[in-house]
Design a protein around this nucleic acid. Structure first.
Lengths: 193, 193
DNA sequence: TTGAAAATACAGACAGGTCTGTCTGTTTGA
DNA sequence: TCAAACAGACAGACCTGTCTGTATTTTCAA
């Protein structure tokens, strides 16, 4: 297939560079000129693939969600060999995430804060992503607890979100242990009843 | 007295306006020109009170922490008349916060995300604020549970942080109920043991 | 009480830089 | 030949921070 369009190497280079810079320094702090310089492409190439910066932002968020899903599914499989409990494996991957170089929290959360506009497509996407992520997490909890999982999944989600923002602010991944222990305890008690 | 200096009316107007605009639209999205226009002051007046925008940002964060402390202490006293439990009163005030007009999450969290620079004085202050806030919360938990509170306070903190970011993303304050119920349950179980 | 000096604030031009997005023209490779 | 990418000037808006000069208010002494 000569779908050069969809898999254009230039387009991919722009996406990778923008993703890295947006996450590292913030969406508003990174200009188009810097992206094209570091991606080593012409300005018109960028604007051909992404008609505006807002379009690029949205494309980057979609791209990042793909990579994040991959990171978690791969990671859980890796950790799943040692840990039977899916929830425990999830928190192990979350810890990997916190410890990954350049970790600066949840890109979707950050985007929503930076955009500061509920009508922006990026904000909408961030909201949708959080719903999908919560569904994913609720699925894991239910695999561990059965139907009773639906009762504790929302609270586990809050522990995870809280751990993310706290890890960024504190500049330390240690808080993930607090979240994991609390989540496992909640799960154990829900199972006990 | 030279009270004109410390409580200068112009200075206060700048602080109030900048606080409102920074919280509403974001620190980077709000320029000096807009602040002086809405505060109805001259540009040189602003730069006399705050030598740079970074100085203004820091001053606004300090100012906001004062107001936040006031909001919570006042609110807890108000709710405390109906609720004996301090932790329960805290979550009632948190709900008030989520429902306040123009709610857009935690200003310190937002500042840390927007500044995207661990060395920035604003980022440092945000980190310090979170520690103080967590200490405040831990104090409440211990008042409810005695020494056992130290065990659950960190997890309660994560529930609160998670609730804040989730309320913003979802655009709904309802999630505070999830956090409250989970926190009270954790507290009750810690007391039972 | 009055009048001059000093501090404060206002008004707005300006410099030098950045931003997004457009345009023209050239090069490259299939 | 033709589409994609490169190179870079450019417009128009915005940014922070400086500067000059005027007006208002406060202070304090005669």
């Amino acid at each position: 297939m000569e779908r050069t369009k969809a898999t254009s190497e230039v387009r991919q280079r722009i996406l990778d560079t923008a993703d890295r810079l947006f996450y590292q320094d913030g969406i508003r702090a990174v200009g188009i000129d810097r992206i094209i310089a570091e991606a080593d492409v012409a300005k018109m190439s960028l604007y051909k693939h992404f008609p505006s910066k807002d379009d690029l932002i949205l494309a980057v968020l979609k791209y990042r969600e793909e990579k994040l899903l991959e990171f978690f599914t791969d990671g859980m499989e890796r950790h799943g060999k040692r840990t039977k409990d899916k929830l425990r494996a999830f928190f192990a991957v979350l810890k990997d995430f916190f410890e990954s170089p350049g970790f600066r929290g949840c890109a979707f959360q950050n985007a929503a804060v930076e955009l500061a506009d509920p009508a922006h497509a990026g904000t909408q996407f961030a909201k949708d992503h959080k719903r999908r992520f919560q569904d994913f997490l609720a699925g894991l909890v239910e695999e561990s607890l059965g139907k009773g999982g639906a009762k504790v999944a929302p609270a586990v989600g809050l522990l995870v979100e809280g751990a993310i923002v706290t890890a960024v602010i504190q500049g330390s991944p240690d808080v993930v242990d607090v979240a994991r222990d609390a989540a496992l305890k909640m799960a154990a008690e829900a199972k006990g009843l």
